[in-house]
């Protein structure tokens, strides 16, 4: 599998990222006054001996504060995350950041999709893309991804029912050569896997790229291994790549290797697992909170973020691609306090 973004060994990457991210810290400190005030209050220095020493922001801060590092008139796009509690992240992109993120996403995915656009099956309905100015997480995922395919089939109708006839037609036409399948993990399972199995459809030429987590599948006892095993056994689909990414670090995806089970970091990104008590980097094999680092965020200070996801590093420079191999284990529950007020929202007085 040819790749130009999964190339650096961990020592090479750390050296390069440390320099680039240190420069980004200084850049955002100059360009984003709220970010500078946070770092000043922390007493953070401009230089870091190691990646783990770089100051991080809690990712939810993008839901409670506007953090932008470019003048307002240079912002060409504001991405918003979906939020179950009504809070949304607002991510500001200027022309350069927008171009870089889509270019680097393309290069990352080309590793598993190849250089050409493939026929594409989207396990979603066409309506999710909707308004291009206000992307929902589902829409943004689909919209970002649709550019990597051609002759798209949106599998679900307006009522979220899979269109079996259209799927048969798509497979008759494209199923004999590599084609791209994209969808959210639980939707792929619910709407594609179960339908394909029931109708005996052949997905063996497909390359599945999926994301979204396992929570909704947990009650069906489907984890990553089971997902891969059953898709392979029942539909012939074996080229399966889970990915982990977030709107707050748009363009950066941590991609599952062809062997399955581990996510890898592209050359311009890395993860650090932090012990949530000591906040120090956790050793390989020890779960903790996932910190994501990426050189792509230049128009907003999202270069070093502490997520609310739990993960574990399985190994370093010992897998299909170089660098760290890790898994996402789930989400930290939202903190709930006792108190007189029934609702708490950070940042609202």
């Amino acid at each position: 599998m040819l790749t130009d973004v999964f190339t650096l060994t961990q020592p090479e990457k750390e050296k390069r990222l440390r320099d680039e991210l240190t420069a980004l810290v200084a850049h955002h400190r100059r360009a984003c006054p709220p970010y500078a005030r946070i770092l000043d209050a922390l007493g953070a220095r401009d230089d870091a001996a190691a990646l783990a020493d770089l100051p991080w922001l809690p990712v939810r801060l993008f839901k409670t504060r506007a953090l932008v590092s470019v003048p307002e008139d240079q912002v060409i796009r504001v991405l918003t995350s979906s939020g179950t509690t009504g809070e949304v992240s607002r991510i500001h992109l200027d022309r350069e950041a927008a171009a870089t993120q889509s270019r680097m996403l393309a290069r990352t995915l080309a590793t598993v999709l190849g250089p050409r656009r493939l026929p594409m099956l989207v396990v979603d309905r066409a309506g999710v893309v909707g308004d291009r100015r206000s992307y929902s997480a589902r829409g943004a995922g689909a919209l970002g991804m649709v550019n990597f395919g051609r002759d798209h089939l949106w599998l679900l109708d307006a009522d979220d029912r899979p269109d079996i006839d259209a799927l048969r037609t798509f497979l008759d036409r494209h199923g004999g050569e590599p084609f791209l399948i994209f969808g959210f993990t639980f939707m792929v399972w619910t709407y594609l896997y179960e339908v394909a199995r029931a109708h005996g459809l052949d997905l063996s030429q497909g390359i599945l790229v999926h994301s979204g987590g396992w929570k909704k599948l947990a009650d069906r006892a489907v984890d990553n291994a089971e997902f891969r095993r059953r898709l392979g056994a029942d539909t012939g689909l074996t080229r399966i790549h889970n990915f982990y990414g977030m709107v707050e670090q748009i363009g950066t995806v941590f991609l599952e290797g062809p062997e399955g089970g581990s996510l890898y970091c592209p050359d311009f990104a890395d993860v650090i697992i932090r012990d949530p008590v000591t906040w120090r980097e956790a050793p390989v094999g020890t779960p903790g909170l996932i910190e994501v680092l990426s050189t792509l965020p230049t128009s907003y200070p999202g270069h070093v973020l502490l997520t609310e996801d739990l993960g574990v590093v399985h190994g370093v420079d010992d897998g299909h691609w170089p660098g760290k191999r890790f898994s996402v284990l789930g989400r930290l529950p939202r903190a709930e306090a006792r108190g007189c007020s029934d609702t708490y929202q950070g940042g609202t007085a």
Binding site: R37, I38, P58, L61, T64, R65, P276, G347
Partner: peptide, 26 residues
């Protein structure tokens, strides 16, 4: 003690206040 979720909540709260200004040191 507080759990990991509350520890993160506290960072969100304190960093947010610092972002607004008026926090000399946290």
């Amino acid at each position: 003690d507080v759990d990991a979720a509350m520890a993160v909540e506290k960072r969100v709260g304190a960093y947010g206040l610092a972002a607004d200004g008026g926090v000399r040191r946290m």
